[in-house]
Design a protein around this nucleic acid. Structure first.
Lengths: 138, 138
DNA sequence: CAGTATCCTGCTTGATACTG
DNA sequence: CAGTATCAAGCAGGATACTG
């Protein structure tokens, strides 16, 4: 608990962004992971969530609040402080999420193999799949 | 196996569409469920997936194919017949998906309560949350 | 610090019409 | 039947600038 969130917590290439299962919107899953070890401040969350704009982070947070997964607490300190933490309901999601991560790790290569096997013919347009589905969290 | 997919398999109101966990794109989760009991034809899938256009269903199917979750088989019968079925990889997703459904059923009321508690003040704009996250597949 | 207000872009979804 | 082609619309995500 209380360790300063690793900026590289989410590899921009690895697992996230390729799994066929997703939690909430683009950032929800990652946010929940960030809160796993206790409440975090708004600006603290922006570190591992590289590049997320204040607007979008606020939106995701509000969405999670609305669903009762996350709670917001404003401290009236000399400097403004707001902390976000998991509610019991939010915390209960960690179990299923772990199961998902386990599945992903287990089948990671198969997913990759399948993707490679389906694109190769094209050379100029290349790798980037316009892929609908399969955006991941975790 | 081989029973003619229930048209009401997916309640447009209930679970799906409110869960904070989603599988692939909007239809992927439902497609996988439809294939659980064996291969299905294109037009057969369109029944429970009310209103999905051919284009969108094709897209989702191609996406699932690309990820190696679903396989496509064209039969050269007198009439054109194409069947989609789960690959072993696709089938392996059923486990985690069941866990997700279990979570949803278990916490359904809490989700609903949280939503109700967060909107009521407004009367004219009403219920509809513009909600980002939380689109579901079940 | 913790947002809000605006504007903008691209993807995802969909309706409609046509084809092997 | 099983798609593809085209066009249109909505919304999530993001860049930038401003506020209590």
């Amino acid at each position: 608990m209380r360790k300063p969130l690793d900026p590289d917590m989410f590899d921009p290439v690895c697992p996230s962004g390729l799994t066929p299962i997703r939690v909430g919107d683009k950032w929800a899953g990652m946010i929940i992971r960030c809160l796993e070890d206790g409440p975090r401040r708004f600006s603290e969350l922006r570190v591992p969530l590289r590049g997320v704009s204040a607007k979008v982070l606020t939106q995701s947070l509000r969405s999670l609040e609305r669903d009762g997964l996350v709670s917001r607490t404003a401290h009236a300190d000399p400097v403004q402080r707001v902390e976000y933490g998991l509610t019991p309901l939010g915390r209960s999601l960690l179990g299923p999420m772990d199961a998902l991560c386990a599945w992903t790790e287990e089948h990671w290569d198969e997913l990759l193999d399948a993707r490679e096997a389906s694109s190769p013919p094209v050379v100029h347009g290349g790798a980037g799949a316009t892929g609908s589905g399969v955006t991941g969290a975790g």
